[in-house]
Design a protein around this nucleic acid. Structure first.
Lengths: 184, 184
DNA sequence: CGGTAACCGGACTAACGAGTCCGGATAGTC
DNA sequence: GACTATCCGGACTCGTTAGTCCGGTTACCG
């Protein structure tokens, strides 16, 4: 980044804001009030708006960071010899991400193509996941017509489902049901 | 109901409000503004509030009506000889309901136990669905530990998922994947 | 240290949506 | 057709939240 080196206090506050935003969005969903984020970051809300012109921009920044992590992890899994296990592991990992942050999935859709970082992250994640799927398919571990979008959607759905039912521990079971369904 | 016979105009407006509410909630989600409902019903919003003291109450009325329909349909399916097919058909029917109205599932959770009509409808639906599941299980059509809550949540979530992905036509495929997963 | 550019926070505006209320209109009754 | 209980709609209040702005403060650099 070619930002002209943020002043030390500004840098610190920016980090705090990002952390707080991730936390608050995760807890309260994508419509969480900015004031709550500022409060938790120990900062006036004017400070939030100087860094991020709109709430959408802040959401996008949080999402982009998370996407980057996921892409990196998917890359690691592509090195694993057992394609089926790698696929399953990624799905479980993605499920945990969705679980930690119910904003994640909904946010991805909302941010549309408006934010280049998010758009790029989405594309990279899809590409990586598609590679995992193709490998797993060769081993008969995933049924034909399924692709990254489908898997993403269904996993997100399973997590939301486990929230809805008031059985937050059911998520593993639900993800496994979906994995079985994906097999054929 | 022992309401002392609504005046003709009042009755007409009440019906319009309920229709409009169902339509608007379906389109805009459970946070849809009351003003929009009033506008579509061709009525001032004061009129809406006289019938339903809060937005929650209006939502509850819409939900209760829908639940009643679903319970009736489940009852019919229990007469069918082929338990597996009946179960599948109910799931597809429920999916169509969720699809028509994205408020439906989320609304059910929000309305908690606050509204007796909704609570009763939920219970009746769960009971009926559990009967369908038990019958289907005897035919090996549904795996062990699954119950009505699980099925409802997974189906609802699968529908939402198909919306998110920007592939609104994928819902049949997703529901089928879930059904396969439920089989074992 | 002192000067200055950058930063901070909170008071402010504007928009929006839920719920209240009352003056005027209307349906039903005799 | 007139009377009255009921209903209607829109103007109003109130609370919430996104986004703006500026007076005061603080970190960096020489």
């Amino acid at each position: 980044m070619l930002e002209p080196a943020l002043r030390a206090d500004a840098r610190r506050n920016l980090d705090r804001i990002l952390d707080a935003a991730a936390e608050v969005f995760a807890e309260l969903g994508p419509d969480a009030p900015i004031d709550e984020i500022a409060r938790r970051a120990g900062v006036g809300h004017g400070t939030v708006f100087r860094r991020f012109p709109t709430k959408d921009a802040l959401r996008a920044a949080v999402l982009a960071a998370r996407l980057e992590e996921m892409v990196a992890f998917a890359g690691e899994l592509l090195e694993r010899p057992d394609a089926g296990a790698a696929f399953d592991e990624f799905v479980m990992y993605a499920a945990r991400c969705c679980r930690r942050d119910r904003t994640f999935f909904e946010g991805l859709e909302r941010c549309g193509e408006q934010f280049p970082d998010v758009a790029r992250g989405k594309q990279e994640l899809r590409d990586a996941l598609n590679k995992l799927i193709r490998r797993a398919r060769r081993e008969g571990h995933v049924r034909r017509e399924v692709d990254a979008r489908d898997v993403g959607a269904l996993v997100g759905a399973a997590i939301e489902a486990s929230m809805y039912t008031g059985r937050p521990d059911a998520w593993r079971r639900y993800v496994r049901i979906v994995l079985d369904g994906l097999r054929s």
